[in-house]
Design a binder for these strands. Sequence first.
DNA 1: CTGAAAGCGCTTACAG
DNA 2: CTGAAAGCGCTTACAG
Lengths: 349, 349
Amino acid sequence: MVSRVGLKDVAEAAGVSITTVSHVLNETPHVRVSPQTRQRVQDVAARLNYRPNRMARGLRTRSSGMIGLLTEEIATTPHAGRIILGAQEAASRHNLTLAIINSALMADADERREDVNALLDRHVDGIIYATVYHDVVSPPAELRSVPAVLIGARDRAGQVPSVVPDEQQGAHDAVLALAAAGHRRIAFAGNSDDVPATRGRRVGYLTGMAAAGLTVDPDLIADAESEPLGGHESASRLLAAAEPPTAIFCYNDRMAMGVYRALNDRGLRIPEDLSVIGFDDQQPIASGLFPGLTTVALPHYEMGAWAVESLAAQLAGTPTDGGSQPLRLPCPLVTRSSVAPVRTGPPSP
Amino acid sequence: MVSRVGLKDVAEAAGVSITTVSHVLNETPHVRVSPQTRQRVQDVAARLNYRPNRMARGLRTRSSGMIGLLTEEIATTPHAGRIILGAQEAASRHNLTLAIINSALMADADERREDVNALLDRHVDGIIYATVYHDVVSPPAELRSVPAVLIGARDRAGQVPSVVPDEQQGAHDAVLALAAAGHRRIAFAGNSDDVPATRGRRVGYLTGMAAAGLTVDPDLIADAESEPLGGHESASRLLAAAEPPTAIFCYNDRMAMGVYRALNDRGLRIPEDLSVIGFDDQQPIASGLFPGLTTVALPHYEMGAWAVESLAAQLAGTPTDGGSQPLRLPCPLVTRSSVAPVRTGPPSP
DNA sequence: CTGAAAGCGCTTACAG
DNA sequence: CTGAAAGCGCTTACAG
């Protein structure tokens, strides 16, 4: 019931062989076809609304035109959506189809292997293995039967190219933005989870302070759980310091949510009394808070797109440097309304 | 490089014809094979790790084992993720693969048609057309070339089965929960967007009040924009009423976020001074707010799963009642900490 | 410049 | 109970 017209129909209608039709429609290189024939075939194909059967082509060429996306926890992370979107749009541009499989975050090695095999059974031309919050990962060996690419983690074996967010640069820039607004006492509401984001953002905070010529006061670093409650706790500690901060850079937007609440509880206004910057650009927090939260965005869309582009390049035969080091994509600062110049002079009533 | 062993290899190794191998592996009905042969074939297939080439099979049987999921705005809605997850897990159970295409929310008819065609080119066995916030939708006619199903909207032509959340029941139950806690002055922080959720939740509020034997005070309904700022505004108006509410049911969690802020600004405690219920169970708001927000969850996972199950049933030949009326899936109340028994006696200091 | 033919890996009447 | 053979719709040497 779908596309009932095949190569044969086009060939008959155009009065040529299916070989010729195939050549002109595929623009086979090094094959000369007379302009008249070419034109006629194209016209007929268009008129008949010919659409190639990709399964037949795939069977012949051993390529399905499909990219498999294996993602950890599609639903529970707020980010997977944008990775999928970036990958999907890039796939469309390359006339590739995205097949998705969800792998449980805590799946064991065998389960992951099965997921990869399910994709391989589909004869996907390439696989994107997307993880969240990992330093290093050991994907099943089967992954390498086709071109593959890693999102959000580095391949332990250093064989699979990978892309990750540049957490450090994002944090660095956030601190610099605060410094540019005149802040000198910039606090870090951090956390100590065992994830790369923690380390990257902490280092970025430190290098940002250094780059701005500011000294880091240990009293201005308060680690807590990376949730709203943790942010509330961090802010409370920070505000109790002998010399409190004029700005707080938060490990993430969820902590910033708690920081807002803590300041609100104390009658402190953002950004008049204190500036705040978050990380993640997580909606609906970031734009739902009052005032809108200035924060650092993660390049999820871009990572998804890069993954497909990289795969497409590999498929086209472009050699890719085996991911000795992951590509780091920049995390841009998204300016809203939670940062203001540091207040000089006496505190307002 | 993938699965290099084919039917032929299994046949040779087992000393039978490929016909026989195909029959035993597919358990073709009405075909008798001697137990010994059957066993031998199965053993050999397992030993060789035979995996059928699905493109070859698809070419022959004209079925790809793929379900196409066309979704509006994968990334911008917080919900798409759970729809995808539900659909993906159901697909895995049926040994189907999910191919995803994103359609821009504002795409015109031609663009949508192309998206459907892209899926059809892939010879998907069925299509899930997932929309957000629509009453009625007119999918491209091509959709019906294969079994199809609609999520989140009703088909204008009444041909495509569909599934939607039971907004009304969700709101109804929320109000009843408040009434069960003794509240009689239950306000509705609503909105007037032109989406089905608005109407359903409003009606549910009304029927819930009626079912609880409560009269609706027009002063206790305050419409505003369905964002945090709108919630703040609604709450402010509600609290200024001659006889303020003891509980607020919010159109959605984002409005509840603003309601929290408004109460916090006035030194009112949740739930001691006022109970609040939201709608959507949107993270990270719902569990990130203090106290955790009691809210109504949308059955996104269930709708995704239902869509695939329904398609699988159609593919298996089970007749499905053409969606004259959409199936309404229940919206369960998620209890957290924002509801308390109404305070009797004089207000606390 | 054009076409006849083989073959990708399966399924499925059909025959024995 | 088992197998030879056709054919799904393409691509691609190969020949002319």
